[in-house]
């Protein structure tokens, strides 16, 4: 017996704890399990703790023949009860990812605009309304961790307006460029376009390292179902997802810059 709170694989099992999503129980009660995991993920409860609590649910339901809804009630409400006992995790990883993404969005907007100006041999200029719109977009992305719970739980009431606000600010920044407003920022377009592309690549590298370092899969302490192969394949998939999501910004940057150049 452990004197300290710990999660151990079941006795006799020497395999690495497996990804909960490959468990048959989780497949059969996917909706309940997803809602439960989401509630704990939103407050950064560590993956191992989530896996442990989900294993309690699985073990109990298999033993009693009950559905999770019968034995544990609403998944989100039970998740909140578990959070009250398990405590919240560190949210440093989520916030650093949000800030990096906000930086990428800013670089994307300014850099692609600079490419268009460079193509026409003009200065990159911003008026006050454009600056406010850009700051608005960046803030909406940077504050996403704060709003994420409401955005996911109430997509129509919160999610769509949140996204619309971001799009409106972005489109607004582009539209007001044609208005005869006083210019408050004026820069040479070529070095900005090239320099910000380099910044975008650097932010992607930092983002990739950050994502790999903060990877925290939800693993089950229960033995049996997940094989080493599935764990390995899950790890490869995670790495690919981190790579694509990190380097998507420089790719979009190049595409937008090329479109602006030829337009």
């Amino acid at each position: 017996m452990n004197a300290t709170p710990a999660v151990q694989p079941a006795a006799g099992d020497h395999s690495v704890p497996g990804d909960v999503w490959s468990r048959d129980f989780v497949h059969r009660h996917r909706k309940w399990c997803e809602d439960f995991v989401l509630e704990l993920r939103l407050v950064d409860v560590p993956g191992r703790v989530i896996g442990d609590r989900l294993a309690e649910v699985e073990s109990h339901c298999v033993e009693t023949g009950q559905f999770p809804e019968e034995a544990f009630g609403d998944a989100a409400a039970y998740g909140k009860a578990v959070v009250a006992e398990a405590g919240r995790g560190s949210s440093v990883g989520v916030w650093s990812t949000a800030l990096l993404s906000a930086g990428q969005v800013l670089v994307l907007f300014v850099g692609s605009g600079a490419a268009a100006r460079w193509a026409h041999d003009k200065l990159l200029t911003y008026n006050a309304v454009q600056v406010v719109c850009l700051v608005g977009v960046v803030l909406l992305v940077a504050l996403l961790p704060k709003a994420l719970g409401a955005v996911i739980r109430r997509p129509l009431v919160v999610g769509v307006p949140y996204l619309s606000l971001g799009v409106a600010a972005g489109v607004g920044a582009a539209l007001v460029s044609g208005l005869a407003l006083p210019v408050i920022v004026s820069l040479s377009a070529a070095p900005v376009a090239v320099g910000l592309f380099v910044v975008s690549v650097l932010l992607s590298v930092v983002s990739y390292v950050n994502l790999r370092r903060s990877e925290d899969p939800v693993v089950s302490p229960l033995a049996g179902e997940p094989t080493g192969d599935s764990a390995l394949s899950g790890s490869r998939t995670d790495r690919r997802v981190s790579l694509y999501s990190s380097f998507v910004f420089p790719v979009i940057y190049v595409i937008l810059a090329m479109m602006n150049w030829v337009a």
């Binding site: 999660v7 151990q8 694989p9 079941a10 006795a11 006799g12 099992d13 129980f25 294993a55 699985e58 073990s59 298999v62 033993e63 302490p221 229960l222 033995a223 049996g224 179902e225």
Partner: peptide
């Protein structure tokens, strides 16, 4: 955690 009798643990 211990292995269960026919169950998941």
């Amino acid at each position: 955690w211990r292995a269960g009798d026919g169950g998941p643990g």
